[in-house]
Design a protein around this nucleic acid. Sequence first.
DNA 1: ATTATATATAAGTGAATGCTTATATAAGGA
DNA 2: TCCTTATATAAGCATTCACTTATATATAAT
Lengths: 109, 109
Amino acid sequence: MENTLIEKQLKAVADLNRIKLLACMKNGEVCVCDFVDVLGISQPAVSQHLKKLKEAGIITERKVGTWKHYRLVEEQTPLMKGILQQIQPLTKCNCVTDCCHVGGNEDEE
Amino acid sequence: MENTLIEKQLKAVADLNRIKLLACMKNGEVCVCDFVDVLGISQPAVSQHLKKLKEAGIITERKVGTWKHYRLVEEQTPLMKGILQQIQPLTKCNCVTDCCHVGGNEDEE
DNA sequence: ATTATATATAAGTGAATGCTTATATAAGGA
DNA sequence: TCCTTATATAAGCATTCACTTATATATAAT
């Protein structure tokens, strides 16, 4: 891996709130509204964090009606594979709102 | 690993210059003067980078006369093990100055 | 003791970061 | 169409960061 890509991905995950976002997504897709509850920060702040993770190639999104579901990309770099292994899944963010039961999030496990 | 420790170590390595410092130290001990040449930044700037890596438990130091040699700590966290695997060694910083041949850096490989 | 060398710390500065509130965009339902 | 809901973007602000130059500390040599 290029050092510049390593730096970009490390910068993207070197933040406690973004680590928590990744911890949430280890269980599957999560919608933005749930992230807001988990982190206790504003919705725009969550959007900005998700944008950084997406630009680093770590997560991807899927639109479901008005909602947007985010998940880890399948093909992670070796760097990210190792890092994600060390982040413990956060189960309490598992899509408590209606949105996540609309577009087919039930087949995750 | 605790999320806060993960964050601390990720923040410590999420910088291109500090990634290069680690790349240098993959070959063994390096003294500060050599880092200055490799990075092309001032000596105080190098000192400050090294301090961050040390405070994150990633590197350690050894005093050799007036010089100070830095190296990766032997016991890395699983997180750091994975990250260090992805950083390519930088050979051009391999102690060209006298200092590194004083305290016994020859038995590295 | 004085001087020189290697490194660390202090202080200052511009750029980047992470948050906020306000607003824009997009989709769904009345 | 109009209103509501979900998310993204814009703008502003306080904090952090990475650098610089200047200075302090520590060791070695004269």
